[in-house]
Design a protein around this nucleic acid. Sequence first.
DNA 1: GCAAAAAGTTAGCTTCGGCTAATAATCATC
DNA 2: GATGATTATTAGCCGAAGCTAACTTTTTGC
Lengths: 150, 150
Amino acid sequence: MTDDDNLDSNEAEARAVESRAEAFIGVREARRSEVAEDYVELIAELIHENGEARPVDIATRMGVTAPTVAKTLGRLARDGLITRAKYRSVFLTEEGRALAKECRHRHEIVLRFLLSLGLDPETAERDAEGIEHHVSERTLALFAAFSKRS
Amino acid sequence: MTDDDNLDSNEAEARAVESRAEAFIGVREARRSEVAEDYVELIAELIHENGEARPVDIATRMGVTAPTVAKTLGRLARDGLITRAKYRSVFLTEEGRALAKECRHRHEIVLRFLLSLGLDPETAERDAEGIEHHVSERTLALFAAFSKRS
DNA sequence: GCAAAAAGTTAGCTTCGGCTAATAATCATC
DNA sequence: GATGATTATTAGCCGAAGCTAACTTTTTGC
């Protein structure tokens, strides 16, 4: 092996390592917004169903306690995704509605895809909930195309 | 609508809400083990490639700083997944090796599946990293079957 | 074999997202 | 409209996972 080969392979290796690191960093970033996305999606759903989103309903549907909901709603409000008044229901801002719509769209594509693969509805719902935050635009497009095809 | 209908639909609704909550709880559980799984998988890889896993290499490949690695390794050691001596490399316990193997298996199935859908390798790697922690056994089996088929 | 560089550790800070216990406000019912 | 039940909030705890700054140990190169 010449010095040049050595350099080249080192550089190739370095690029591979860096791209892997970027993948991990990307996953960590996605993880940070997961909770917010789940809440916003659920809030949109509750408003659609009941005309309002009450913390108590968010709590039971998310499977967490009321104080956890309160704290998370604080963060969502801080980040401009919801508005709320003390002891009142929660509503989405324009930004929150946009995010909710996007999440619902992704969720549905992933869910339909899993179902079209032949997965049972219960497992499909459960897996979709975890997967939806980690699919790129490209993957989503492939999922959608596949479901449509079959 | 009769009272009976009302009761029935309420109960059905309650079951749906509960099952949804369980999905969220499951996702949160999966999230808790994600970091450990990523580390263990990477450590196995480094040992395979270099004969040892040094914190500095874990750090660059994970895209985090050395102190973060140190703290995480502390948790892994506490949880019986690795062994280590001060200022020395890290090694996997029997349990750690088993987990690493399982993770690698899952990772490869997801990756192959995404590639077989026609995704480019870079995106496939990135998405697989995020998705692998959220696929059930059933979904994994379907993914594997699909890749083999095509 | 010593000095400088590299690697590892420790201390201490932050945010997030859970929880319980206690308190406050609202709602519903009589 | 008082009161009991429901709902919401606050305070305060915890652990995970990130960071920087400062320090120690090990490795390397002369």
